[in-house]
């Protein structure tokens, strides 16, 4: 059930748009209105979400330290895993965001015991697949800018060149297309196959995977198999970004499926775990400097509390203190 519901949802979405475009001729709806709406929901949703996070203060300085602190000058500090400066935090976050540093921690050459296999193997795969998936997602996203600009910007062309350096087939095969399909498939299989991960997984964990598989799948179909009218697509895309939307004839249903799934992903983003993209930057255990004894951290909602004062304490024990020779304030 946990898997079936999200799967069927994605299938239903695909059927919906196919029927809408093929039978009802709703190109305008699926090609223009929904994408606009989705982007609007995405932008507003993310902003609201981040604002919501940002409005909760960070009352305490609570980095999780993963290396030697800065203390005595002759003890070598781990400036990245236990940063005491903003620069260190930037490096730590960069490693985290660009290379998934923490996931990589799982990979550790293990002590081998009487021929025990290398342990944590599957976790290394998680890191690798996670990285492969995210990077190819990013590259594919960047590659799509060619549709939105009259002249394809140089960085985009460069990335395209790198991505297709194998020079296989016509049209040239993009490596990332293979990688993203492989990685997402792996992430899915892993969720199903590893008992622990399966146990913790929710429908909301499968849904984005199916959605992205759907997006990547339709994209690959369009590029390599059932060709769509690329000039038409570009016209539509340019129209969208210049706010003079046009709906060219005969782009092909498959394209609308692709576009619709992307729209769904965008609209779904702010309401789901996918906000981890933004959240990772606000995680106090990672983005804080470990300098709490050097610089006082201020808690905006710090309030006075009742304490048991020394005077009360002495009142309780004055005689006993005097007998034990402990100095007192009031004789």
């Amino acid at each position: 059930m946990k898997i079936l519901i999200p799967f069927l949802t994605v299938i239903a979405l695909i059927l919906l748009v196919a029927a809408g475009v093929k039978a009802a001729g709703l190109e305008l709806l699926f090609g223009v209105l929904i994408p606009y709406a989705a982007v609007a929901v995405f932008a507003v949703g993310i902003v609201l979400r981040v604002v919501k996070w940002a409005r909760s203060p960070v009352p305490f300085r609570i980095p999780t330290t993963c290396g030697q602190q800065k203390s005595l000058p002759w003890i070598r500090q781990n400036k990245i895993e236990n940063p005491s400066s903003t620069l260190g935090v930037i490096a730590r976050m960069a490693l985290e965001v660009l290379f998934f540093r923490s996931l990589f921690r799982n990979v550790k050459t293990e002590l081998r015991n009487d021929g025990d296999r290398l342990a944590y193997g599957s976790d290394k795969w998680l890191w690798l697949a996670g990285l492969a998936f995210h990077w190819s997602f990013l590259i594919i996203l960047v590659r799509h800018f060619r549709f939105f600009a009259a002249h394809v910007p140089f960085p985009v062309r460069m990335i395209e060149g790198l991505d297709s350096f194998l020079q296989i087939g016509a049209p040239l095969l993009y490596l990332t297309d293979l990688i993203i399909l492989g990685a997402v498939t792996y992430l899915f299989l892993r969720r199903v196959a590893l008992p622990m991960v399966r146990y913790i997984s929710l429908p909301a964990d499968y849904f984005p995977l199916f959605l992205i598989l759907g997006i990547a799948g339709t994209g690959v179909l369009m590029r390599y198999f059932t060709k769509v009218d690329v000039t038409g697509v570009k016209q539509l895309a340019m129209g969208l970004v210049s706010f003079t939307p046009v709906v060219p004839e005969g782009i092909g249903t498959l394209f609308y499926v692709h576009l619709f799934l992307v729209s769904v992903l965008f609209a779904y983003f702010p309401f789901s775990k996918l906000v981890h993209m933004a959240g990772v930057f606000l995680s106090p255990t990672r983005n804080m400097v470990n300098n709490s004894r050097m610089v006082r951290h201020v808690n905006p909602w710090n309030y006075p509390v009742t304490v048991h004062t020394y005077e009360e304490y002495e009142d309780d024990f004055r005689e006993k203190m005097k007998m034990a020779g402990i100095p007192v304030e009031k004789e």
Partner: peptide
């Protein structure tokens, strides 16, 4: 607590249930 602690608010929202912490 959600209003007082960003950690709590963010941690409630962003877990992807990847399972890296599980074991």
């Amino acid at each position: 607590l959600l209003k007082k602690y960003r950690s709590f608010q963010v941690f409630m929202d962003i877990c992807v249930r990847c399972g890296a912490c599980a074991d």
